[in-house]
Protein backbone atom coordinates (compact mmCIF):
# COMPACT_ATOMS: atom_id res chain seq x y z
CA UNK A 1 0.00 0.00 0.00
CA UNK A 2 1.58 3.21 -1.18
CA UNK A 3 -0.05 6.56 -1.72
CA UNK A 4 0.92 9.93 -3.15
CA UNK A 5 0.53 12.17 -0.14
CA UNK A 6 -0.97 15.64 -0.45
CA UNK A 7 -0.55 17.37 2.93
CA UNK A 8 -2.01 20.79 2.06
CA UNK A 9 -1.18 24.08 3.75
CA UNK A 10 -3.05 23.57 7.02
CA UNK A 11 -1.23 20.35 7.84
CA UNK A 12 2.02 22.32 7.66
CA UNK A 13 0.53 25.21 9.67
CA UNK A 14 -2.20 25.43 12.29
CA UNK A 15 -3.20 21.82 11.66
CA UNK A 16 0.29 20.36 11.99
CA UNK A 17 -0.83 18.02 14.76
CA UNK A 18 -2.86 16.18 12.13
CA UNK A 19 0.21 15.39 10.00
CA UNK A 20 2.45 14.83 13.01
CA UNK A 21 0.06 12.19 14.35
CA UNK A 22 -1.22 10.68 11.10
CA UNK A 23 2.10 9.83 9.47
CA UNK A 24 3.43 7.73 12.41
CA UNK A 25 0.09 5.93 12.63
CA UNK A 26 0.19 5.05 8.93
CA UNK A 27 3.82 3.94 9.22
CA UNK A 28 2.89 1.78 12.22
CA UNK A 29 0.25 0.09 10.05
CA UNK A 30 2.63 -0.46 7.17
CA UNK A 31 1.05 2.16 4.92
CA UNK A 32 3.64 3.94 2.79
CA UNK A 33 3.22 7.52 1.70
CA UNK A 34 5.29 9.66 -0.61
CA UNK A 35 4.81 13.42 -0.33
CA UNK A 36 4.02 14.94 -3.73
CA UNK A 37 6.96 17.05 -4.78
CA UNK A 38 6.31 20.78 -4.93
CA UNK A 39 2.56 20.51 -4.29
CA UNK A 40 0.66 23.78 -4.14
CA UNK A 41 -2.38 25.05 -2.23
CA UNK A 42 -5.51 23.21 -3.39
CA UNK A 43 -7.43 26.49 -3.59
CA UNK A 44 -9.81 25.59 -0.76
CA UNK A 45 -13.20 27.30 -0.61
CA UNK A 46 -11.71 30.77 -1.12
CA UNK A 47 -10.45 30.28 -4.66
CA UNK A 48 -13.79 28.88 -5.87
CA UNK A 49 -15.34 32.17 -4.74
CA UNK A 50 -13.02 34.17 -6.97
CA UNK A 51 -12.49 32.19 -10.16
CA UNK A 52 -13.67 28.68 -10.96
CA UNK A 53 -11.24 28.11 -13.84
CA UNK A 54 -8.22 29.18 -11.82
CA UNK A 55 -9.37 27.21 -8.81
CA UNK A 56 -9.59 24.15 -11.03
CA UNK A 57 -6.18 24.80 -12.58
CA UNK A 58 -4.54 25.18 -9.16
CA UNK A 59 -6.04 21.90 -7.99
CA UNK A 60 -5.21 20.17 -11.29
CA UNK A 61 -1.53 21.06 -10.97
CA UNK A 62 -1.49 18.81 -7.91
CA UNK A 63 -3.33 16.04 -9.72
CA UNK A 64 -0.74 16.30 -12.50
CA UNK A 65 2.14 16.15 -10.01
CA UNK A 66 0.52 13.15 -8.33
CA UNK A 67 0.22 11.36 -11.68
CA UNK A 68 3.90 11.99 -12.25
CA UNK A 69 4.77 9.88 -9.20
CA UNK A 70 3.25 6.86 -10.94
CA UNK A 71 1.17 6.10 -7.86
CA UNK A 72 -2.49 5.63 -8.71
CA UNK A 73 -3.85 6.72 -5.35
CA UNK A 74 -3.61 10.04 -3.64
CA UNK A 75 -4.08 10.61 0.08
CA UNK A 76 -5.61 13.96 1.09
CA UNK A 77 -6.24 14.21 4.85
CA UNK A 78 -7.60 17.78 4.96
CA UNK A 79 -11.33 17.94 4.24
CA UNK A 80 -11.08 21.05 2.06
CA UNK A 81 -8.21 19.60 0.00
CA UNK A 82 -10.02 16.29 -0.27
CA UNK A 83 -13.15 17.97 -1.58
CA UNK A 84 -11.42 20.42 -3.91
CA UNK A 85 -9.17 17.78 -5.51
CA UNK A 86 -12.17 15.50 -6.01
CA UNK A 87 -14.20 18.38 -7.36
CA UNK A 88 -11.50 19.39 -9.83
CA UNK A 89 -11.35 15.78 -10.98
CA UNK A 90 -15.13 15.78 -11.54
CA UNK A 91 -15.03 19.10 -13.40
CA UNK A 92 -12.25 17.93 -15.69
CA UNK A 93 -14.17 14.79 -16.54
CA UNK A 94 -17.66 16.33 -16.79
CA UNK A 95 -17.02 19.64 -18.53
CA UNK A 96 -15.03 19.51 -21.77
CA UNK A 97 -14.72 23.32 -21.88
CA UNK A 98 -13.16 23.35 -18.41
CA UNK A 99 -10.87 20.50 -19.34
CA UNK A 100 -9.69 22.40 -22.41
CA UNK A 101 -8.83 25.51 -20.40
CA UNK A 102 -7.08 23.56 -17.63
CA UNK A 103 -5.19 21.33 -20.07
CA UNK A 104 -3.82 24.32 -21.94
CA UNK A 105 -2.95 26.14 -18.73
CA UNK A 106 -1.06 23.09 -17.43
CA UNK A 107 0.62 22.73 -20.79
CA UNK A 108 2.06 26.23 -20.40
CA UNK A 109 4.04 25.00 -17.39
CA UNK A 110 4.91 21.64 -18.93
CA UNK A 111 2.41 19.48 -17.04
CA UNK A 112 -0.25 16.99 -18.10
CA UNK A 113 -3.27 15.76 -16.16
CA UNK A 114 -5.25 12.70 -17.18
CA UNK A 115 -7.59 13.12 -14.24
CA UNK A 116 -7.70 9.49 -13.16
CA UNK A 117 -5.92 9.44 -9.78
CA UNK A 118 -8.20 8.28 -6.99
CA UNK A 119 -8.29 11.00 -4.32
CA UNK A 120 -8.72 9.19 -1.03
CA UNK A 121 -9.35 10.20 2.55
CA UNK A 122 -7.36 8.56 5.37
CA UNK A 123 -10.57 7.21 6.95
CA UNK A 124 -11.38 5.50 3.66
CA UNK A 125 -7.87 4.04 3.41
CA UNK A 126 -7.85 2.93 7.05
CA UNK A 127 -11.21 1.20 6.85
CA UNK A 128 -11.11 -0.24 3.37
CA UNK A 129 -7.44 -0.80 2.52
CA UNK A 130 -5.94 -1.46 5.95
CA UNK A 131 -9.06 -2.86 7.60
CA UNK A 132 -10.36 -2.74 11.14
CA UNK A 133 -8.85 -6.12 12.04
CA UNK A 134 -5.33 -4.97 11.26
CA UNK A 135 -5.99 -1.81 13.27
CA UNK A 136 -7.34 -3.76 16.25
CA UNK A 137 -4.20 -5.88 16.26
CA UNK A 138 -2.08 -2.79 16.81
CA UNK A 139 -4.10 -1.54 19.79
CA UNK A 140 -1.92 -2.03 22.86
CA UNK A 141 -3.60 0.60 25.01
CA UNK A 142 -7.33 0.48 24.38
CA UNK A 143 -9.17 3.74 24.95
CA UNK A 144 -11.45 2.08 27.49
CA UNK A 145 -13.73 4.54 29.22
CA UNK A 146 -13.05 7.42 26.84
CA UNK A 147 -16.29 8.81 25.48
CA UNK A 148 -15.73 10.26 22.02
CA UNK A 149 -18.04 12.32 19.82
CA UNK A 150 -17.07 11.55 16.21
CA UNK A 151 -17.17 14.72 14.13
CA UNK A 152 -17.02 14.37 10.35
CA UNK A 153 -17.87 17.95 9.42
CA UNK A 154 -19.03 18.90 5.96
CA UNK A 155 -16.69 18.26 3.20
CA UNK A 156 -15.62 14.65 3.37
CA UNK A 157 -19.12 13.26 2.84
CA UNK A 158 -20.60 16.19 0.96
CA UNK A 159 -21.14 16.65 -1.90
CA UNK A 160 -19.26 13.52 -3.01
CA UNK A 161 -20.04 10.53 -0.83
CA UNK A 162 -17.28 8.29 -2.09
CA UNK A 163 -16.75 6.06 0.93
CA UNK A 164 -19.40 6.74 3.53
CA UNK A 165 -23.03 7.71 3.98
CA UNK A 166 -23.87 11.40 3.51
CA UNK A 167 -26.49 11.65 6.23
CA UNK A 168 -25.02 9.32 8.80
CA UNK A 169 -21.37 8.46 8.15
CA UNK A 170 -20.03 5.71 10.40
CA UNK A 171 -16.47 5.02 9.35
CA UNK A 172 -14.96 7.02 12.21
CA UNK A 173 -17.47 5.53 14.66
CA UNK A 174 -16.23 2.06 13.70
CA UNK A 175 -12.61 3.13 13.87
CA UNK A 176 -13.00 4.64 17.35
CA UNK A 177 -14.84 1.56 18.57
CA UNK A 178 -11.96 -0.56 17.26
CA UNK A 179 -9.63 1.53 19.43
CA UNK A 180 -11.71 0.60 22.46
CA UNK A 181 -13.37 3.98 22.89
CA UNK A 182 -17.04 4.52 23.66
CA UNK A 183 -18.66 6.29 20.72
CA UNK A 184 -21.23 8.87 21.76
CA UNK A 185 -24.40 9.12 19.72
CA UNK A 186 -24.22 12.63 18.37
CA UNK A 187 -26.58 13.62 15.58
CA UNK A 188 -24.58 16.74 14.71
CA UNK A 189 -21.71 14.72 13.29
CA UNK A 190 -21.92 16.31 9.84
CA UNK A 191 -23.19 19.78 10.79
CA UNK A 192 -21.07 22.72 9.69
CA UNK A 193 -18.59 24.17 12.22
CA UNK A 194 -18.85 27.63 10.66
CA UNK A 195 -15.84 27.24 8.40
CA UNK A 196 -13.94 30.47 7.89
CA UNK A 197 -16.93 32.50 9.11
CA UNK A 198 -15.66 32.12 12.70
CA UNK A 199 -13.00 34.65 11.75
CA UNK A 200 -14.86 36.77 9.19
CA UNK A 201 -18.38 36.92 10.73
CA UNK A 202 -17.97 35.62 14.29
CA UNK A 203 -21.60 36.16 15.35
CA UNK A 204 -22.74 33.63 12.76
CA UNK A 205 -19.66 31.39 12.58
CA UNK A 206 -19.02 30.97 16.28
CA UNK A 207 -22.63 30.10 16.96
CA UNK A 208 -22.28 26.99 14.82
CA UNK A 209 -19.17 25.91 16.72
CA UNK A 210 -20.89 26.69 20.03
CA UNK A 211 -23.86 24.47 19.16
CA UNK A 212 -21.57 21.55 18.30
CA UNK A 213 -19.56 21.88 21.51
CA UNK A 214 -22.62 22.27 23.68
CA UNK A 215 -24.33 19.24 22.20
CA UNK A 216 -21.21 17.10 22.56
CA UNK A 217 -21.04 17.98 26.28
CA UNK A 218 -24.75 17.35 26.71
CA UNK A 219 -24.28 13.88 25.24
CA UNK A 220 -21.58 13.13 27.78
CA UNK A 221 -18.55 13.21 25.50
CA UNK A 222 -15.05 13.65 26.98
CA UNK A 223 -13.53 14.63 23.66
CA UNK A 224 -14.49 15.41 20.07
CA UNK A 225 -12.60 13.56 17.34
CA UNK A 226 -12.22 15.39 14.05
CA UNK A 227 -10.84 14.80 10.55
CA UNK A 228 -10.44 18.41 9.47
CA UNK A 229 -7.89 21.09 10.39
CA UNK A 230 -10.43 23.90 10.13
CA UNK A 231 -12.98 22.07 12.29
CA UNK A 232 -10.25 21.33 14.84
CA UNK A 233 -9.22 24.97 14.86
CA UNK A 234 -12.76 26.27 15.25
CA UNK A 235 -13.78 23.85 17.98
CA UNK A 236 -10.54 24.19 19.94
CA UNK A 237 -9.46 27.82 19.59
CA UNK A 238 -12.47 30.01 20.30
CA UNK A 239 -13.51 28.85 23.76
CA UNK A 240 -12.89 32.23 25.37
CA UNK A 241 -14.94 34.04 22.73
CA UNK A 242 -17.73 31.48 22.87
CA UNK A 243 -17.85 31.70 26.67
CA UNK A 244 -18.04 35.49 26.48
CA UNK A 245 -20.94 35.40 23.99
CA UNK A 246 -22.94 32.47 25.34
CA UNK A 247 -21.54 30.15 28.03
CA UNK A 248 -18.41 28.08 28.62
CA UNK A 249 -18.49 24.78 26.72
CA UNK A 250 -14.97 23.49 27.29
CA UNK A 251 -14.20 20.11 25.76
CA UNK A 252 -11.04 19.08 23.91
CA UNK A 253 -11.10 18.47 20.15
CA UNK A 254 -8.38 16.24 18.69
CA UNK A 255 -7.69 14.50 15.39
CA UNK A 256 -8.80 10.87 15.14
CA UNK A 257 -5.18 10.08 14.29
CA UNK A 258 -4.06 11.36 17.71
CA UNK A 259 -6.46 8.93 19.36
CA UNK A 260 -5.11 6.14 17.17
CA UNK A 261 -1.59 6.99 18.25
CA UNK A 262 -2.66 6.88 21.89
CA UNK A 263 -4.27 3.48 21.44
CA UNK A 264 -1.22 2.16 19.60
CA UNK A 265 0.97 3.30 22.49
CA UNK A 266 2.98 5.68 20.30
CA UNK A 267 5.22 8.20 22.10
CA UNK A 268 3.99 11.68 23.04
CA UNK A 269 5.90 13.35 20.22
CA UNK A 270 3.79 11.30 17.80
CA UNK A 271 0.43 11.89 19.46
CA UNK A 272 1.25 15.60 19.85
CA UNK A 273 -1.58 16.28 22.26
CA UNK A 274 0.30 19.36 23.46
CA UNK A 275 -0.75 21.15 20.26
CA UNK A 276 -4.33 21.46 21.47
CA UNK A 277 -5.54 24.50 23.41
CA UNK A 278 -8.03 22.57 25.53
CA UNK A 279 -5.90 19.67 26.76
CA UNK A 280 -7.08 16.08 26.58
CA UNK A 281 -6.13 14.41 29.83
CA UNK A 282 -6.41 10.71 29.29
CA UNK A 283 -3.79 8.04 29.82
CA UNK A 284 -4.92 4.69 28.44
CA UNK A 285 -3.69 1.68 30.39
CA UNK A 286 -1.94 -1.26 28.69
CA UNK A 287 -4.31 -3.99 27.59
CA UNK A 288 -4.89 -6.63 30.27
CA UNK A 289 -4.37 -9.69 28.03
CA UNK A 290 -0.88 -11.03 27.50
Amino acid sequence: MKYAYFPGCSLKGTGRAYEESLLPVLRHLGVEVQEIEDWNCCGATAYMAVDEGKACAAAARNLALAERTGLRQMLAPCSACYLVLNKAQHYLNEYPAMRRVVTRALDSVGLQCRGDTAVRHPLDVLLHDVGLDAIKQKVTRPLTGLKVAPYYGCQIVRPYATFDDQANPESMDKLLAALGATVVRWPLKTKCCGGSLTGTLPEAGLRLSYILLKEALKRGADVIATVCPLCQFNLDSYHAKIAARWEPVRIPTVYFSQLMGLAFGLPAEQTVLHRGMVPLRFEPAPAAHA
Partner: peptide
Protein backbone atom coordinates in the same frame (compact mmCIF):
# COMPACT_ATOMS: atom_id res chain seq x y z
CA UNK B 1 -13.75 40.71 5.51
CA UNK B 2 -15.05 37.77 3.44
CA UNK B 3 -14.17 39.01 -0.07
CA UNK B 4 -11.00 40.59 1.31
CA UNK B 5 -9.94 37.21 2.69
CA UNK B 6 -10.75 35.54 -0.64
CA UNK B 7 -8.75 38.17 -2.52
CA UNK B 8 -5.70 37.93 -0.22
CA UNK B 9 -5.94 34.16 -0.39
CA UNK B 10 -5.82 34.02 -4.18
CA UNK B 11 -3.01 36.57 -4.26
CA UNK B 12 -0.94 34.43 -1.89
CA UNK B 13 -1.60 31.31 -3.97
CA UNK B 14 -0.65 33.09 -7.19
CA UNK B 15 2.52 34.64 -5.76
CA UNK B 16 3.78 31.82 -3.55
CA UNK B 17 1.77 28.70 -4.37
CA UNK B 18 1.02 28.01 -0.72
CA UNK B 19 -0.97 29.56 2.11
CA UNK B 20 0.65 30.52 5.36
CA UNK B 21 -2.56 30.63 7.36
CA UNK B 22 -1.69 32.81 10.31
CA UNK B 23 0.07 35.29 8.03
CA UNK B 24 -2.98 35.40 5.74
CA UNK B 25 -5.42 36.00 8.59
Amino acid sequence: PIPVLAEEFTKMVRDHGRISETRLV
